[in-house]
Design a protein around this nucleic acid. Structure first.
Length: 485
RNA sequence: GCGGAGUUAGUCCAGCCUGGUAGGACGUCAGCUUCCCAAGCUGAAGGUCGCGGGUUCAAUUCCCGCACUCCGCACCA
């Protein structure tokens, strides 16, 4: 199914829609989740907790979205999360100053250079707008962080551009109070904010978005000392090697040197096992090692986990080996001690990060699972039962003869434990179709026979087949069928 | 941010050229019918035509600005 069809489903079935849409001053890059979207998101997060946080005995925290200025002085975002931009006075086109200068003159001015240096080169080399030959106004820095004013004085603070800064800042306390031992993963789900120049394609590039991040703190001397690696050594991952994607086990990726150490290989394996269970087609995924120029300013080694969608390859997760960049820097700026003891030795931990984009993942789950069943004239969202916004529809075949009342009884019995949808009205086939579109894996139908022997039919979304079971067996049947793997 | 195309009911779209304040399909709701896969019949709700300004006796329609959406470019931890 293509992008337009996904959007249409999202709008019609309550997955997501534009924020503040009734007002004309609404800004681009902000979207809301409706009931179906929230239900799907919650289940995705629960799966993430199971497959990463609990499996690997991580700690999960929930930090503030607004953080103080010093956090971003230390993290480097204040200086580096900004691009030097040149604006044409005539056609108002905006260019990345460093890239434009390099293209035209082959002179490399570092991105972080003083702004006057850019101006100097532009003046000396008489650089004009590549589009309209207009002249440039002075170089400015465009920082992608949202600045906020705190209190009556409006003191500077920022909406976090990545959730992980909370984890770094909290690390000393957490390690002491939670009796930490390296390696330890600290996880967080939350919102991040980036003032993108051009947000696009609904959930794929947002200005306010959800991240699920894991920061693994480790002893850099022990990156290959990881017994639990055996759990994933035979897990298949797909990785780019010289422009082609190769499928191999984590062990092969490690042995061939494509992945630098066991710790990284272990988490790449966990990640793929997680995504397999989201229903995203991992046969259309790849890890791509980023080149020097593509990497974030804090990363020494970086792999993007990407999946193929109708809009092209889409980055779902950034896996960055951040070394001691963050802890060292926060240590220097705050004077807090970040060294910890590991086997009688004092070490400043290194960090390996798994930074997941939730919104993009949800989009991909829908795209990979939405199909048109032409034979039966329906659209089906074949989500895994444990991820479906609605677990089970509860329908009366007809309303009269006491069937509606009986249906209500069944609904009351199940509604607290499962995500249910009660529906009495309209043609039965139409109600089944509606449930198919929100991905409900089951539909229970109460018919006349129910009144006689307390059995109901339960319909399977994908096969459209039905079986008759006792009402008293419904709970155990559904519990089994909707359980997380 | 640039260029192009759009914005009319929950969704998809017609109407605009040739100004006189809106219509279809699907969907939704109610009733009838129907004991199992978008059937049928009857009825109903739902739109200040993206926002602001201009021209005009009169603007959904013409003009301008802005916002948003999509596509391309640029950007993208």
């Amino acid at each position: 199914m293509n992008y337009e069809q996904i959007i249409q489903l999202a709008l019609e079935r309550g997955f997501y829609f534009p924020s503040c849409e009734i007002y004309s001053d609404a800004h681009a890059g902000f979207w809301e989740y409706g009931p179906s979207g929230v239900s799907l998101k919650n289940k995705f997060i629960e799966l993430w907790r199971r497959e990463l946080v609990r499996r690997d005995r991580m700690w999960e925290i929930d930090g503030s979205q607004i953080m103080s200025e010093n956090v971003f002085v230390a993290s480097g975002h204040l200086a580096s999360f900004a691009d030097p931009i040149a604006t044409c006075t005539k056609c108002k086109s905006i260019f990345r100053a460093d890239k434009m200068i390099e293209e035209i003159t082959s002179i490399t001015v570092p991105e972080s250079a003083d702004l006057a240096e850019f101006d100097k080169v532009i003046e000396e080399k008489k650089i004009v707008c590549p589009k309209c030959k207009g002249s440039f106004e002075g170089i400015k820095k465009f920082n992608m962080m949202f600045k906020v004013g705190i209190g009556a004085q409006g003191e500077s603070a920022y909406l976090r551009p990545e959730t992980c800064q909370s984890i770094f800042v909290d690390f000393p306390r957490l390690f002491k109070t939670m009796r930490g031992k390296l390696p330890i993963g600290i996880a967080q789900i939350g919102k991040s904010f980036r003032n993108e120049i051009s947000p696009r394609q609904s959930l794929l590039r947002l200005r306010e978005f959800y991240q699920a991040e894991v920061e693994v703190f480790c002893n850099p001397a022990k990156l290959d000392d990881l017994p639990k690696f055996s759990e994933v050594e035979n897990t298949q991952i797909r990785i780019m090697v010289d422009e082609t994607i190769k499928s191999m086990t984590c062990k092969e990726a490690l042995d061939s040197g494509l992945v630098p150490n066991k710790l990284v290989a272990y988490y790449l394996g966990l990640l793929v096992e997680f995504y397999q269970k989201t229903g995203i087609d991992v046969a259309r995924s790849r890890f791509r090692k980023l080149g020097e120029k593509e990497k974030a300013f804090y990363a020494t080694v970086a792999f993007d986990f990407e999946v193929e969608t109708n809009t092209g390859w889409l980055e779902l997760v950034a896996c960055n080996y951040r070394s001691d960049y963050d802890l060292k820097s926060h240590g220097n700026t705050s004077k807090e001690k970040f060294e910890v003891m590991d086997d009688e030795t004092k070490v400043l931990p290194h960090v390996f990060e798994i930074s997941m984009g939730i919104d993009r993942s949800l989009y991909t789950m829908i795209e990979h699972r939405l199909r048109e069943d032409k034979e039966n004239d329906r659209v089906v969202l074949s989500l895994e039962p444990y991820l479906s916004p609605v677990h089970v529809g509860i329908l009366s075949l007809v309303k009269k003869d006491g069937l509606a009342e009986k249906t209500d009884e069944v609904y009351m019995m199940l509604r607290k434990k499962y995500d249910t949808f009660l529906d009495h009205s309209g043609a039965i086939g139409r109600r089944y179709r509606r449930l198919d579109e929100v991905g409900a894996p089951f539909a229970v139908t109460i018919d006349h026979q129910t009144l006689e022997d307390n059995t109901v039919t339960i319909r399977n979304r994908d096969s459209m087949s039905q079986e008759r079971i006792k009402i008293s067996d419904l709970d155990s049947h559904l519990a089994r069928a909707t359980a997380f793997p």
